[in-house]
Design a protein around this nucleic acid. Sequence first.
DNA 1: CTAATATTAGAACGAACGTTCGAACTATGG
DNA 2: CCATAGTTCGAACGTTCGTTCTAATATTAG
Lengths: 207, 207
Amino acid sequence: MPGVAHTETRFDRRLAEILEYAIEVFYERGYEGASMRDLSRATGMSLAGLYYYFESKERLLYLIQKHTFKTIVQRLKERLKDANQPEQRIRVFILNHLEYFLSNQKAMKVLSHEDDALKNGFGAEIAAIKREYYHTCLDLMDEFKAAKGLEFNSRIAVLSLFGMMNWIYTWYKPRVDADASELARDMGDIFLRGICTGGQRGTRRKV
Amino acid sequence: MPGVAHTETRFDRRLAEILEYAIEVFYERGYEGASMRDLSRATGMSLAGLYYYFESKERLLYLIQKHTFKTIVQRLKERLKDANQPEQRIRVFILNHLEYFLSNQKAMKVLSHEDDALKNGFGAEIAAIKREYYHTCLDLMDEFKAAKGLEFNSRIAVLSLFGMMNWIYTWYKPRVDADASELARDMGDIFLRGICTGGQRGTRRKV
DNA sequence: CTAATATTAGAACGAACGTTCGAACTATGG
DNA sequence: CCATAGTTCGAACGTTCGTTCTAATATTAG
């Protein structure tokens, strides 16, 4: 698209502001539980005025989820360029995820918790980004396996790792818990040691 | 309470049936997204008829969550009686959680996903059961640490474990993934190896 | 300053929400 | 078979929902 992306318009800035409020509202009350009137109150804008910026509540959630997810994926790609060793690459993945998660905790809850709230087209697009993100992690896991000569179920490993990380939104308290880098180290330790078998290869306890 | 629990009345049986349908509906559409009319349709009972069995939609969610949670806690207590070694006790915890989770996947999603949907009194009671369950696991972790002479953050360990296990409701497919016992073994392996440090005690890499 | 354009707001739409009421059923014990 | 208690229902209540219409107000360009 030539000659399109030049200046950020007033419209774009205002929309971005509204999205921030919407994240807050969805975080607090959930997508279904939040009403457009809640958002109207939060932004100080009239109910009708909001619809100048997006066409529906569902589209609003879509915009939030897409922007959040695209950002985390893009940051990951950049960071992975600088990492070569398989273990380090997995640690980069964990750190990137947790750093973004904790810096944007509310948006990440809206992304994780309202996973299947979007229907049809909207839902499909977000699901595609999610699948790409999942596969990136799966590939890292397979690299690691090959390099170390390990055998384990990559699917279970990746999904367990996502569980450890995404569950954070249910318990993390900034005043109590460590910051992202320390958390990433701890979870990375647990996970990486966890997927390394004791040394035997291709063996299964008890048959 | 002497002389209370005798026969299961028709009322009790019908209520239990309705709760099953409610689990299905809440699972499918979420607590906020599900309407009493959805439940009416699912049960084949009239909208007004439902209110003969419970006084509000919120109370309905409470009944589901309480029964589900109480059952899983009770089963755990019985199973822990037969386990003595710290490692085995943690494995029992994991197996109990996953077995119940997969046998009652829909109810467990309603429990996990609608964590903060209940207000005030209802919410407080469920939160208390949850806290008890959490502390049981925390104690198991501390037993394990003491027995093995390990040092790690028990809070992070327990919450990571819960994350691994509870996240299942977002991805588990019976036709694709292994059953509870195999899953419990895999996750148990990852977790238990994960929390065992390489042997050094009280050391911290890099400072 | 004026005319065009971008942005906001008041008021209302029909639909769906959780819940209630009184009447009508159905089962049960005398 | 009747009376009583237990169970179900149609119809409606008042409220809130997401969304839209039209008109009014800011902003900007000429």
